[in-house]
């Protein structure tokens, strides 16, 4: 499974690589990282929408995670990748907007990696 992680905190990359080191080693999951919404769109263009699943932070400078979500769900409809939104603000407003824009799931920070792994298994 190909997962694109989008977050403006760069250390998220090292964290995911360590948290999923077994899955990466066993070639179960391949990760790509983008540090802004703009970078994420660029990645999707360059790689012919290579990601099956996108995990995106909502609160980022520049293009917000919700804007990114809207772009993805509007543009890539054959079929669009799954998108899970992650936010530090677990508020109804963000949740409702994300769902209206077609988010497939919604997580709040701090990310519980056990929960996330369960969800990924269910998708696979």
């Amino acid at each position: 499974m190909n997962i694109l992680v989008v977050d403006d905190e760069r250390d998220v990359q090292i964290l995911f690589e360590q948290r999923f080191r077994k899955e990466i080693k066993n070639n179960e999951i391949e990760f790509a990282f983008a540090f802004s919404g703009e970078e994420a769109l660029q990645y999707l263009n360059d790689n012919n929408h290579g990601a099956v699943l996108i995990l995106s932070d909502i609160n980022m400078p520049g293009m917000s995670g919700l804007e990114l979500l809207r772009h993805i769900k509007e543009k890539y409809n054959a079929p669009p990748p799954l998108v899970m939104m992650i936010t530090a603000y677990g508020d109804a407003e963000n949740y409702n907007t994300a769902m209206r824009l077609g988010a497939d799931d919604f997580l709040t920070k701090p990310v519980e990696f056990n929960v996330l792994k369960e969800k990924l298994k269910a998708i696979q």
Binding site: E9, L15, R19, A88, K109, P110, V111, F113
Partner: peptide
């Protein structure tokens, strides 16, 4: 909110280290 991010990293990396 600003403290939450570094704390998440601290907790996560500490947990990973215990496993490692």
């Amino acid at each position: 909110h600003e403290i939450q991010n570094p704390l998440n990293f601290i907790n996560n990396f500490a947990e990973v280290n215990a496993e490692l």
